[in-house]
Amino acid sequence: MSDYVLQCGAAPTAGSKYLVWVDQVGAFLLSLKNEVAIGGPAIDGGAADISFLANLSRRHATIVRSGERYVLHAQAPSHVAGRPVHDRSDLTDGCEILLGGSVRLAFRQPSVMSGTARIDFLSDHRPARAVDAIILMDDTCLVGPGTDKHIRCRPGQSALLLYRRDGKLWCKSREDVFVDGQHAPEGAELRSGSVVTGNELRFRIEQIG
């Protein structure tokens, strides 16, 4: 497993998991880790990175980013694109992941310009913190209107870029955006609790891990 970590970019230093609350759009779990464990609820600790309220093993599967590839390692019964995964399986844009017998997820890579992936929920199962999607962020995360964005906003809302810089999370846009009320034409670092506003767009980012 360490092979995959070594192949990836700089590990995040400021945090590895965020919640992004976007007005009028939804809530998103932003994971900056290269290896994300998925599992069921665990009351006594040891929960997976993404813990679903579902009948899953505590660590049911792990999604690992390797360069531009994503691989699912199954630790419990899992299917990818309808086929059972005995050990690992590549994830491709649009493929469906079935964990256990009921948790259905969709794996998407909406932009060829970014290695970031998005996991949508096809079944009604959600993580304990109710979000609308999980973003497995590589170097950049696209926010704005359009189907090629990882966080798809409403028409008319600003488009901007979340990106890693020096192990921290930054944000910039061609349009006028403000981070915590400060105009940020050259981009600005995002901290836990930062509020980003643009044209018809407002979101707050909150570090949770």
């Binding site: 609350w21 007005d23 809530a27 979101f203």
Partner: peptide, 10 residues
């Protein structure tokens, strides 16, 4: 009191 707004819905 007792509720924290996280985001606007509409």
């Amino acid at each position: 009191s007792g509720y924290t707004i996280k985001r606007a819905i509409d």
